[in-house]
Computed example of a mutant assay.
Amino acid sequence: MPLLSDLKVVEWSTWIAGPGCAAVMADWGAQVIKVESAAGDATRTFWPDTAECPGNPIFSNENRGKRGVVLDVGKAEGRAALITILQDADVFITNVRPGALKRARLDYDSLKDELPALIYANVTGYGLTGADVDTPAFDLTGFWNRSGVASAINPPDREPIGSRPGFGDHVTALATLSGVLAAVHERARTGRGRQVETALMRVGCYALGWDMSIKLRNGEALTAQPRHTRPGAIAGYFRTKDERWICVSQRGPNDFPQMMRAVGRADLIEQPRCAAPIVDMAVVHEIRDLLDRVFEALTLEEACAMMKTTDIIFAPMASLDDVIADPQAQEAGCFVDMPDGWGGSFKAPAAPVRFPATATGPAGPAPKLGEHTRQVLAEAGYGQAEVDALIAAGAAS
C-alpha cells in the first residue's frame, strides 16, 4: 500500500514550492487535488503540452499524480466549493500571499474553527507577519538573495550569479513537507490540525546554516573569497586538460599527504612550511600552482582516476548530460518515468527520498486544466445540476 494513501491533500498554489511539496506527497501515495484559476498555474505556459509535443516538463514535474480542479474563489459559489472539498481533507497547501488569503476569507484563522482537523500549510516569501508579509517573492529573491545565500556564494571580485530556477523552491518544498508530516504525526495523537508555515527567506537562512551560525556566534564568518585569497591549499576547483573542472574538498590533515603522494610530490609532506594548517599564503599559492599544473595535464577521466587512489573527497563538475548518463545516478534513483498524459512517458527527476522495497513515483500525469473538476465536485457531494450551475456561473470550469 502506498505510504500516504490515507491522506487527502488539497493544494491551491502556483509555480514551484507549494506544488512541489504536494507533488512529493502524490508520489508517496497521497490523493492530491490541485485547485487552479481559469488562467491556470503559470508554469503551464512554459512549454507546450500537445499531442505533437506531449508533456510539459516543468508543470509535470511539480504536478504529476494530482487531479485538477478549476474554481474561481473570488465568487461566493467558488469559495463555497473549495470549503466543501476541504471538509474531509487532511492537508491544505497554499502559497497565495497572506493578504489575499485574508481578503478571500481563506486564511487559517478564517477556517480553523470550521475545519479543526485540517493541517493548513502556508508557503510564504517572508513569513506571516512583518512589513514584508505581502511583498512578492521568488526563490531567486527570498531564498537566494535576501537570506544571504547569494552573498555567501558569490566571490566579491565578480558579477554575482543567480540561482537556477526553482532551486530554493525545491528546498522550501521539502521543508514544507517535513512540517506537514510532523503535523500529521501530532494530529494522530491530538485529533487536531494546525497551521504550518515556511518562508523562502527562513529556509535560505537554514540552508546557509554553516556560515550563518558562525556569523551569529562570532560576529564574522569567512564566505566566498577570490581564489588567490582563499586558504586551503588543495581545496577548490581545478581545470583539466579537456577544459572540464574537478572539485576537491579537504576534510582533515591527512588529505594533504595523500594528495602529495598522488601527484608525486611526497617530498613536500615533511617540510615544516607545509605543516598543517598551512597559513602562509605564499605556500598556499605554491601548492595550488603545483596542483593546477598537475590537473591541466590530465583529462577529467584521468583526474578522477587519480583521485580515486586516495580517500580525499572529490567530484567532477558534471553537466546535465553527464548526470543523465551516469550509471551511479541510475543506481541512486535520480530519475523516474513520467506519464505524459498522452499515452507515453518521459524521464523526470525523482523525489529525493526512496523507501527500499516500496514502490513510489508518479501516480499519473499532471492534470489538464480543470480535467477533474466535475469528478472532484461530485465526490464532495455536488449533484450534476449543481455542478452545471457552478460552471454556468463561472465559479468552476
Rank of each mutant, 00 (worst) to 15 (best):
A39W: 13
G40A: 11
G40D: 09
D41C: 08
A42F: 12
A42I: 12
T43N: 15
R44F: 07
T45D: 13
F46C: 12
F46S: 07
F46D: 07
F46Y: 13
D49E: 07
T50P: 01
T50H: 01
A51V: 09
C53E: 14
P54W: 08
P54E: 05
G55M: 03
G55R: 00
G55D: 04
G55K: 05
N56E: 04
N56S: 08
S60Y: 01
N61D: 11
N61A: 14
N61C: 14
N61H: 12
N63H: 10
R64W: 09
R64L: 12
G65Y: 07
K66S: 10
K66V: 10
R67S: 12
R67V: 07
G68I: 04
G68F: 06
G68R: 02
V70P: 00
L71R: 05
L71D: 08
D72E: 09
D72R: 02
G74F: 08
G74I: 08
K75M: 13
E77H: 06
E77V: 12
E77C: 04
E77K: 13
G78A: 06
G78Q: 01
R79Y: 05
R79D: 05
A80F: 01
A80L: 02
A81P: 04
A81V: 09
L82I: 11
I83K: 15
I83T: 11
I83P: 00
I83W: 10
I83E: 15
T84A: 14
L86I: 10
D88E: 14
A89Q: 09
A89N: 04
A89H: 09
A89Y: 07
D90L: 10
D90H: 14
V91E: 10
V91M: 11
F92P: 06
F92S: 01
F92V: 04
F92E: 10
I93N: 03
I93F: 11
T94S: 15
N95Q: 13
V96W: 00
V96D: 00
R97H: 05
P98K: 02
G99S: 10
A100L: 02
A100Y: 00
L101V: 02
L101Y: 00
L101F: 01
K102V: 09
K102N: 01
K102D: 02
R103F: 07
R103V: 06
A104R: 13
A104F: 14
R105H: 15
R105G: 03
D107V: 00
D107E: 03
D107Y: 00
Y108S: 03
Y108W: 14
Y108C: 02
Y108L: 09
D109C: 04
D109I: 03
S110Y: 03
S110A: 15
L111E: 04
L111F: 10
L111W: 06
L111S: 05
